[in-house]
Design a protein around this nucleic acid. Structure first.
Length: 168
DNA sequence: TAGAATGAAAG
DNA sequence: CTTTCATTCTA
């Protein structure tokens, strides 16, 4: 058996001080930043994360490759706000772009996600993804428990893959 | 074991 | 609202 491996499999230069693995990302170009001290009160390490009002100290999950890509995409101002400032639509577009991304780039983002995970894990070694620890989730759970007899309305997400009456 | 669900960004 | 991915949870 002869397996052929790509000789250009990027050895991943693990440099603690080297932020970029491959200068293929737009961030590498984002070297200058016009940050007005006036505009920046003292955000310190407080992440903008406005996803949901969480108690201070809530540790957000590490971003996925897609999330990183989307953030970079929007940050890159690829789509001027005057064209579309709605992230809902942007997400759709970026989603398509993501699908059209070349495998190489996709892997690149994946590696970035892995790095983010590693960093996150280093910062919060004991952190763990715990879905259902939020009040919202708990409330939903209770609701489900009450209505556990009746299946919830089909969620408009993903495709149901028709179970095809699975008789057990 | 496999599917469901939640959570992440962000304006 | 919307995306995809990852991790967790439940049946």
């Amino acid at each position: 058996m002869t397996y052929s491996f790509d000789a250009e499999l990027t050895p991943i230069p693990y440099n603690p001080d080297s932020p970029s693995v491959v200068d293929l990302s737009p961030e590498s170009v984002l070297r200058f930043e016009l940050v007005s001290e006036e505009e920046v009160p003292r955000i310190s390490a407080t992440r903008p994360s406005h996803a949901k009002k969480r108690d201070a100290g809530h540790i957000p999950r590490p971003p996925n490759a897609f999330i990183l890509f989307r953030s970079s995409f929007i940050k890159s101002e690829s789509v001027p706000g005057n064209i579309e400032g709605n992230h809902s639509t942007l997400s759709k577009i970026i989603g398509i772009v993501w699908k059209t991304l070349p495998p190489a780039e996709r892997e690149l983002w994946e590696k970035r996600a892995v790095q983010a995970q590693a960093e996150h894990r280093t910062r919060y070694p004991d952190w763990r993804f715990r879905p259902g620890t939020n009040v919202d989730a708990i409330a939903k759970r209770k609701t489900k428990d009450k209505n556990k007899d009746r299946p919830p309305p089909e969620r408009r997400r993903r495709n149901p893959t028709a179970p095809a009456t699975k008789s057990l």
